[in-house]
Nucleic acid binder design. Sequence first.
DNA 1: CGTTATTTGATATACGCCATAACAATTATC
DNA 2: GATAATTGTTATGGCGTATATCAAATAACG
Lengths: 178, 178
Amino acid sequence: MDAYDSDERTSGAATTPGRRSRRTAADLDETAESGGDLDLSGLTGVVGYRLRRAQLAVFEDFNRRFQRFDLKPAQYSALLVIGDNPGRKQSEIAAALGIQRPNFVAMLDELERRGLAERTRSTTDRRSHAVVLTEHGRRLLAEARAEQAQQETDLGDLLGPGGRDALVSLLHRLTQAE
Amino acid sequence: MDAYDSDERTSGAATTPGRRSRRTAADLDETAESGGDLDLSGLTGVVGYRLRRAQLAVFEDFNRRFQRFDLKPAQYSALLVIGDNPGRKQSEIAAALGIQRPNFVAMLDELERRGLAERTRSTTDRRSHAVVLTEHGRRLLAEARAEQAQQETDLGDLLGPGGRDALVSLLHRLTQAE
DNA sequence: CGTTATTTGATATACGCCATAACAATTATC
DNA sequence: GATAATTGTTATGGCGTATATCAAATAACG
């Protein structure tokens, strides 16, 4: 699923005890192995590994919460950006979401099929499609926003006071540089 | 790509100014839109969105660094876990990595084809395959560990003192509960 | 002991996400 | 006015992941 390894020099506090590949004589019985748990110390303190696992967990939670809306993360983010930027070009919405234009076509098709969004031909540039939400789309988005806010609140409870904000800030820094 | 929305009640510090869906009269010119940047305030402070973006960024960096090894994150993590748990069953390795057993078959095939890992039939249970690294695999893993440690160090520099450890700790909490 | 259930590795398959190439219509450039 | 660039679209392939199914081997249990 993912990867990475940690190193004692780079991991200070948040890492688990850990053990290295070179075993001592006292560990030889474990090298033979029987039924115990695996040694995952090489992965536990690694940013990339933790990021992947956390993202999967949060998305899983998202999907549970949004089952009643029949909205996947990508669909919700699309509704959100369209709702906050009505009348923008289809390609602009896609770019903002980090979705390739070709892949956004089918996605918008689906939103349109469900009566949540609309393509309207621009009068000034007949190439582009100005995308807007329907009334139905706006209503659904309002409910979805509330559910999303609840998830954010629950994550705040889980991460402690200031923990959620600290996390968002740290994550933001990772996308700024690279 | 992903989704989520933030809410002023749940986001304290780390969020951007933002703007809500209901516009004021002063914002009407932006509702018509022309060429400016999009309003992404609904996404910037959201844990799920930030997680996804950060994970993609860190993985991209990983892939750049590991090009010379021809190792993808999943392959590196497999080598790592096998190296730290030699002789374990194929299914145990897969489970530890969060990979479905069927999907791990082709992956191990590839590692075996490249002479990095080996399947050896267990003498006690002729169903299972005890998986180990070859000498070549151990040598490659040693180099890969060093490169990975360097990435971790660089991430530490980027996130400030204690920032990396704090991030790992916060991410860990997200996977503990859910 | 022998029948049944479970485990293990493997194959086939399908779905979703993502990327690129190519195209027609339209607009911009010069 | 010829050429280039943009926009939406289609087609297509790769990659990761999930499920159903299977044969071989072992475990469970009457």
